[in-house]
Simulated scan of single mutants.
Amino acid sequence: MTANAAEGLKRARRGVGVAGRGPAAPAPRGPNGGRTTLGRSWPTLSAFALPSLILLILLNLFPVIYAFLQSLQNGTPSTLPWEADFVGLQNYVTVLTSPQFWQAAEFTLIFTIVGVFGSWVVGLGLALLLRTKIPANTTFKVLLLLPWIVPIVVSSTAWNWLVATPQSPLPIIFSWFGMDNVNFLGDPLLAQILVCIFKVWISFPFMMMMMSSALASVDTNVYEAAKVDGAGSWHTFTGITLPMISRTTYISWILMTIFCVNDFPTIFLLTQGGPVNATTTLIVLAYQYAFQNLQTGIGTAIAFIMTAVLVVISVVLYQQIKKVNIE
């Protein structure tokens, strides 16, 4: 293809003719030269859409405003906003100066990092494996989706059965190697490791699906060209595969970060935040304050702090998505 032809194609995609930009398309007019029927009826269409719009705003905005008012007050879940004592930002000060909050924040960070990157590595590896010709490929894909499909209550019950007592299967297996009386749910470090592994196990199918769709959109001609140029498998992976799927990768990181930070059932059903608060995350701590200690103000304050952090992380990752430029 000549340079003139290539330039012509580019100009055609932009809607530019050979001699410059073509004439603008005339505005839609009615049969008498006036506005179209759609243009005349927009007030009617807006009136029909307004009730639904108001309902959506109320359903989404009212709970946020109500919760924020609760974070500024000292009340219980049953206390109405005008009945509670207004304390201003005292709940936020109490939260930020609490050692229990920072302990929960530290484990939330660990839990999120392991959950995001652990599930991404496993999911990407399986997505690459599924692109190859392996026996019973379809059956293998369905089986890999089971941790994501099975309800979390069933999964947590199964894992609890595997590790809960010394007579459970996993402690018995460890005893074969000389490690007797391994208490996965009683030892703080082992409980943290178990919760993180459980999160990766139930999350990698989501990452696998995201990465599989991203890999399917990569043109195979790019790999053929790299192979002709003598690029090895590692250079092809780091120089072609990862950059080409970077947009989907950043999106999956954003979503999984939100899933991990807001993941209440995974931890509560398995360890309930124990032992000695070792596996308590911020969302579990907010629940404990709001519904166990009946300190709604502190619980909602923790929730709003979590929301602010998630917004910052999402904005940072979204900026990375905007910087990605794949030609």
Rank of each mutant, 00 (worst) to 15 (best):
S156A: 14
T139D: 11
T139I: 13
P171Y: 11
T157W: 00
P151W: 02
M209L: 15
M208Y: 01
L146E: 11
L194Y: 07
I149R: 04
W159Y: 03
M179E: 08
S175T: 04
C196S: 12
W148A: 12
F204R: 03
K141T: 14
L194P: 02
G123T: 05
L162Q: 10
F140L: 15
T139N: 12
G186I: 03
N160E: 02
F184N: 06
T138D: 07
W176K: 11
K199D: 03
V182A: 03
S175M: 07
Q192L: 06
N160I: 12
M207E: 06
F177H: 05
K199M: 09
W120Y: 05
A191T: 00
I173T: 13
S119H: 03
M208Q: 01
G115E: 00
L124M: 03
W148T: 09
L126F: 02
L170N: 06
Q167T: 13
M207C: 01
L194M: 13
M179S: 12
V116T: 03
L128V: 09
I173L: 13
D187F: 04
P166I: 08
I113L: 13
T139V: 15
S168P: 11
I152A: 04
L145K: 04
G118M: 03
A191Y: 02
C196H: 03
Q167V: 15
D187T: 04
A127P: 11
P135R: 10
W148V: 10
W120T: 13
I202M: 07
I202S: 02
L130T: 10
V114T: 04
W159E: 05
W176C: 07
W159V: 14
V150G: 11
T165G: 13
N160L: 11
L194G: 14
W120K: 09
L128G: 06
N160A: 06
N160T: 11
L128S: 11
L189W: 04
L194W: 05
V200W: 00
S155I: 05
S203C: 05
P147I: 00
F204P: 03
L162R: 07
G115Y: 01
